[in-house]
């Protein structure tokens, strides 16, 4: 098999120049959509019949939890490509994704705790869903900490890649924990197959919020990746030509 096209795909210079015009539109669009989704969800969506207004944290909690998991999937995929084929750019993504994923994971845990106190009667329980989500946060923190502790960038990239690939086993455990075991956390409300168990007046702002959060993630990711690219390639001609007018 010939994979040479694969290697050309991720030239740093090419990536940097092609993403430049995209930063602003994505950033503005994502912030606008977040504002619309929040106003819609927090002010206009009807209150829940049982939980009243406290359910509204769903508009932050669910998108954050989705992102925390999908970012890890992306992280593990990049780590896999990097470790075996040393595909260019995947190491930069590996470095840039971890702090973003950790932030969303923390946000999901904190908003969940705030919702849990009035709804369940407790901030925290050690059920399978909550515990596996906490492990995800520790995996993210471990990947970040390993990079800080490694003696060289080469070691850091390789170590983080192995850690990320191994940690991917946690993702299906998080997803299916509510089906496999008795947990205090309820089962999935949004379903890809079959009907979602949420009224449409609440579903639409939630879906909009999810789209807005994903766009915001792409925006932050592009910023981080571009910054890390410049740092890593700071000694190359193309980076220098960006800053020194010829």
């Amino acid at each position: 098999m010939n994979f040479s096209w694969f290697y050309k795909l991720g030239s740093p210079k090419w990536f940097y120049s092609i993403t430049t015009p995209w930063i602003k539109p994505i950033g503005i669009l994502s912030l606008a959509l977040i504002i619309i989704a929040f106003v819609w969800g927090l002010a206009y969506a009807p209150a829940d019949y049982l939980q009243g207004n406290s359910y509204r944290i769903i508009f932050i909690h669910v998108p954050s939890a989705f992102l925390a998991e999908s970012i890890y999937c992306m992280l593990a995929f990049c780590a896999f490509l990097f470790f075996i084929w040393r595909v260019k750019l995947t190491d930069v993504f590996l470095e840039s994704l971890a702090p973003i994923g950790a932030s969303f994971c923390l946000l999901a845990l904190v908003t969940g705790a705030i919702w849990g106190k009035p709804t369940w009667g407790t901030w925290w329980v050690w059920d399978a869903r909550l515990t596996s989500m906490l492990i995800l946060l520790f995996l993210y923190l471990g990947i970040i900490a390993f990079r800080q502790a490694a003696t060289s960038r080469k070691n850091a990239d390789r170590g983080c890649a192995i850690l990320a690939v191994i940690g991917a086993i946690n993702i299906p455990i998080i997803k299916f924990s509510v089906d496999w075991w008795n947990t205090l956390h309820q089962g999935a409300t949004l379903k890809i197959t079959g009907a979602s168990t949420i009224a449409t007046e609440m579903l639409y702002p939630l879906l909009l919020s999810i789209v807005a959060f994903y766009l915001f993630f792409i925006f932050v990711l592009l910023l981080r990746v571009r910054n890390n690219l410049l740092l890593r390639e700071s000694k190359t001609k193309w980076v220098n030509s960006l800053f020194i007018p010829n």
């Binding site: 009807p46 409300t189 949420i198």
Partner: peptide, 8 residues
């Protein structure tokens, strides 16, 4: 809590 969300 169950997985159902709906207005009153």
């Amino acid at each position: 809590h169950d997985s159902y969300y709906m207005p009153k």
